[in-house]
Design a protein around this nucleic acid. Structure first.
Lengths: 224, 224
DNA sequence: GTCAAGATTTTTGTATACAAGAGCCATGGT
DNA sequence: ACCATGGCTCTTGTATACAAAAATCTTGAC
């Protein structure tokens, strides 16, 4: 589909980052990547430039690109902003959703229910993404949808960690239910608040997040 | 300061876009830009890649880069999101501001007052930016500050147009006053709402915006 | 044995070369 | 006179070449 190689490369590398294949802090060697993807360094560099503009990698002059490794504080802030944007999307969705939006939202919600019943967190993780995307779409704000999608994508690895916390999947699904109801009934404030607290990392969840982050770091051998 | 040329190039080109030197819809010829900046095409391309990732230019395969020309609807949506994020920054600032934050905010506010009195919209435009940045800083959320700054920057040309509307400067400054008071008194909801409505393009302002946009397009000769 | 300074190697940053697609112009046919 | 087709040119996309800086290794001194 994409005529240009650097689009594919960007997506591939980005994917490698959000799936954890390239770990935070890891150095991304241009020559190595070039060999791996069977291209020259030029398109690789162009892809890395794009990722650096998005904030997924950091390019230090003459020292190459590394996968950014945000401090827990920063990750928390990202969730905080995400919560606000999702709340906004929910509020807009409550006002603007069409028949198709409702259908898509309910369908996604059902898929989530199945995932919960099957107790497969990976499956829930996947269906959850579709659920949230359905809300972005229902907001009927193209720009907001874009912003949400980008940030959602960037937070992927951390969300995956969050789901590991005991009972998080069930609690998440219950919250989904309330959100669906608020949106479908046109309750803008309910939808906003529901999504805000659903996404935000509040109370115990912050501790869980930090714990997961440092676990991961310890595993990857960069910390005592 | 910046070792690498493509950082400077990116900033220069971005600046050219937000100041209107490169007009929306304009094609950015790599060779031309390379000559103009006295470099080869390679770093130019890398700069354009970054701008494309940010959303300032669009790169169509084999057809080069053009300055994005968002539809009025899209610009409206951008202001809508900006309003929400600024509201959030205001709410956080109301809770978290330090002594220095207060001082910076008040200083920026005073500068705005001087600009209003001098009736120089360009000067107000400049001081206004500093005022808003002071709020981002006071939010003490690095990520939010980053997001706000980026979006604020992207909306620059449109804000400039908005200030041309009769009395907008005075009204804007009055709103600033209320925002300052809310933040300093720790009134989170007041700060949020004050900033939201200050930034949002509501009511008549939407019409003004659209009118300004189509004026500009007509002037640049791309519309009847 | 350890540390430091110099040399070597690796890797990034930029320029240039080349291939291929898009756009444009001209020529010819209807 | 107008449209279509073919070739020419211009521009982009990718590879490669080369320079300079960083990282690494080696050697020598203490």
């Amino acid at each position: 589909m994409s005529e240009n190689i650097f689009y594919k490369l960007r997506d591939d590398i980005e994917n490698g980052i959000v799936t954890g294949e390239f770990e935070p802090g890891e150095r991304l060697d241009e020559t190595q990547l070039a060999m791996r993807f069977g291209v020259s360094r030029t398109p690789i560099r162009e892809a890395l430039m794009q990722l650096s503009a998005i904030g997924l990698v950091e390019i230090r002059p003459r020292r190459g690109a590394v996968v950014v490794d945000p401090a827990p504080q920063r990750v928390y802030e990202m969730f905080e902003v995400m919560a606000e944007l999702e709340g906004m999307a929910g509020a807009l969705a409550a006002r603007r959703h069409t028949e198709e939006d409702s259908a898509a939202l309910l369908a996604a919600h059902e898929k989530c229910r199945e995932a919960v019943l099957s107790e497969e967190t990976d499956r829930y993780y996947y269906e959850n993404e579709i659920f949230h995307r359905a809300i972005y779409t229902a907001s009927h704000s193209g720009f907001l949808e874009e912003q949400c999608t980008t940030l959602h994508r960037r937070l992927r690895p951390y969300r995956r960690l969050q789901l590991r916390v005991r009972n998080r999947m069930k609690v998440s699904f219950r919250e989904h239910g309330e959100i669906v109801e608020a949106i479908l009934s046109g309750n803008t404030d309910g939808a906003r608040e529901g999504l805000r607290s659903h996404v935000a990392v509040q109370g115990d969840r912050f501790g869980d997040l930090v714990a997961n982050l440092s676990n991961r770091e310890r595993r990857s051998g960069r910390l005592g």
